[in-house]
């Protein structure tokens, strides 16, 4: 099964899900999604997409499924080129004509792919942070529901969420806690 086939399947599911959301009362849909079981299904789909698509494609597919969903008429302007997005076929054509597009991802384990994607993201963020001396930094530690969410704001241009305590602390280990605290200009949280 190639990436476009998976994209089409996800699109069909999303359209069906959206139709259901439009039918049920708001209280029902909120209760339906706000529980560990449904969250685990969403997490599973996210892991599947992490394995199938590159990081950039994953962002595009999320945007396509959740934000655009094929029912708006949009123009995507990329450099000197303008692409009209009216149907899923326009989106598919855009994806397959990208320079680094491959129909299938090289086979790797879920763990390898996931770890590699996060390491790359962390290194990119660290590089950006040293270049944004004028930016405001804030750290929020949220232990509610056993989840630690660490947010970094850099003049509203970047926001990074580490969904688990392990990932957040691993990042702090990578760049060094003292440097991290100085960047954030906040109280000691250890």
């Amino acid at each position: 099964m190639n990436k476009i086939t998976i994209l089409r399947e996800l699109y069909i599911q999303q359209v069906d899900g959206n139709k259901w959301l439009d039918k049920v009362p708001r209280e029902v849909s909120t209760a339906f999604f706000d529980n560990p079981y449904v969250e685990s299904l969403q997490r599973s789909q996210d892991l599947l997409m992490t394995c199938v698509f590159t990081e950039e494609e994953h962002e595009w597919v999320d945007w396509f499924l959740l934000d655009w969903a094929g029912d708006k008429s949009l123009s995507v302007i990329q450099g000197a080129d303008t692409f009209a997005f009216n149907t899923i076929e326009d989106f598919v054509n855009y994806l397959v004509n990208q320079e680094d597009w491959e129909d299938e991802q090289p086979a790797t384990t879920v763990a390898e792919k996931y770890e590699a994607a996060h390491k790359k993201a962390w290194k990119t963020k660290a590089a950006n942070w040293t270049d944004h001396e004028q930016s405001k930094w804030a750290l929020m530690l949220d232990y509610k529901q056993g989840v630690l969410a660490m947010e970094v704001f850099t003049g509203y241009q970047h926001r990074v969420i580490f969904p688990t305590r392990v990932e957040a602390l691993s990042f702090v280990d990578d760049i060094g806690y003292e440097a991290f605290r100085d960047f954030l200009n906040c109280e000691d949280v250890s």
């Binding site: 950039e56 934000d67 123009s75 302007i77 241009q157």
Partner: peptide
């Protein structure tokens, strides 16, 4: 989802890409 029809979102991956409502 309740406001999706009225809001156009940017793609996080490409900060140099502009999205316009036709």
């Amino acid at each position: 989802h309740t406001i999706r029809a009225e809001v156009n979102c940017a793609n996080n991956a490409d900060t140099d890409i502009v999205i316009e409502d036709n």
